[in-house]
Design a protein around this nucleic acid. Structure first.
Lengths: 245, 245
DNA sequence: CGCTCGCTTGACTCGTCTCAAATGATGTGG
DNA sequence: CCACATCATTTGAGACGAGTCAAGCGAGCG
């Protein structure tokens, strides 16, 4: 398995050298997906668990009449189908938001690891719990935060998550979502997202153009969005200044 | 451990006799909590994981300015603090919605089980994944469903969840939430919840009085709320007719 | 060049919120 | 056993945030 994956696990909890070795020993096959916005249903390798190595994806849910809600944003280091692997059954749909590269781990190898290493199991379990924690925070956003707060909050979240896997460049990071996709994340309409972004631009808090976000004042944005990073469960909270290269 | 707990695990996945035995062998101490609406922070036994045996509780999140979002409803059979146990860190606040009884399992015993039984581990892991799945569905509700749809959807969900642990009486079940608490679940205002409930009553779909819900037409309600039960991951989907006594 | 797609803008509508007050239950203490 | 808090539910009126509809603009691309 790749460095990224292990680093991601270690961003939430510490691992023994032995655990790390066991994880690194997992065989992984790298695969590329070129399309944008394409549904990934059926395109993932059967009986494998995938780790997103590069690019952005999302889980979403369509209602029968065309309404769509994006349920989570997946960034490099995220594990795609652990849920499916553990729980079975149908899972939410998946779509690529950019070209992706993913590594695929055979279920059998993973299963063996789970049977022999309780600590590795717990690390994997943890990643699903962090995802749930993020989902809960989105509930708070959509349920109780205003449009302006929601956008600010989301940008802070993405910033820290990307920082944790070394995917930011100073105040800048890639966020390849259209405004209408952002709307489906935030439970807003496209038009309102547009107006809200303009407001944030006018306040000189952010720039956002062709998929690149620039954050001019993280702290102000965090205040505006009532953002508090603890729900991300990052062990060493990456602050704007102290970002790993 | 009690029957209820094991039954709950088995509602999502099948267990070996050995696994079941290991789980039943977990020592559990029964505790009662009398208050309603009281925060449970600090009242749970330290270094124990709790299973709700009877009553209703919820997780919630307060924003600094008084807004509140309820993040999950906990019903008998639900495990309260597994997340905390696995992931550590701060967890959302907990409140009792009725008098509760819970059994407490010492962390050490649970830890030992996790280290020896990968299958039991997976069963426990699954329960946290089901919770996440429910959280996702709530995202869809709050993000995209209308007030009427949200209420209908929630009632269908609670009905099936309670049915899965044998806590319904025909079309009737207990739901000890005030309308303002319902509002905090659904991301609506109290006033609007009230009007929405009235509409459902006028349509003769439900009755709801002093914490007792009566569902006159589950299927109609499910259609209205765009409800589809797969996200609950129940192995034998309890349908209105086929409810265990 | 002429699509298409994403962004932007304006005008209007509507679902839901807020404020406010009345009604009804429940419980408590004098 | 009544008088009086307190809290949940209900109702009305008005305001506002966000949605919808529609059109124009701009960039990328075959």
């Amino acid at each position: 398995m790749t460095e990224l994956f292990v680093a991601r696990l270690e961003s939430h909890m510490s691992l023994d050298p032995a655990d790390r070795a066991g994880l690194m020993a997992l065989p992984a096959q790298l695969r590329q997906f070129s399309g944008r916005n394409s549904s990934l249903s059926g395109k993932l390798t059967e009986n494998h668990v995938h780790v997103l190595e590069d690019g952005f994806a999302c889980r979403y849910r369509d209602l029968p009449d065309g309404r769509r809600q994006i349920l989570s944003l997946l960034i490099p280091g995220d594990i795609i189908d652990l849920r499916q692997f553990v729980l079975g059954g149908a899972q939410p749909q998946l779509a690529a938001l950019s070209p992706l590269s993913m590594s695929a781990i055979p279920n059998t190898n993973l299963l063996k690891l789970l049977e022999t290493s309780p600590r590795a199991t717990r690390a994997l379990w943890s990643t699903t719990l962090v995802e749930e924690s993020i989902c809960r925070e989105w509930l708070v956003s959509i349920g109780k935060r205003s449009a302006l707060e929601r956008v600010a909050h989301l940008l802070c979240e993405i910033y820290l998550r990307l920082a944790a896997v070394g995917r930011i460049e100073g105040p800048r990071f890639s966020l390849p979502l259209t405004q209408s996709e952002l709307a489906d994340v935030l439970g807003l309409s496209t038009v309102h997202v547009n107006r809200t972004l303009q407001e944030l631009r006018k306040s000189e808090l952010i720039a956002f153009q062709s998929g690149i976000v620039e954050m001019f004042d993280f702290d102000a944005l965090a205040r505006l969005g009532l953002f508090s990073p603890s729900y991300l469960h990052l062990r060493r909270p990456s602050k704007p200044g102290s970002v790993p290269a």
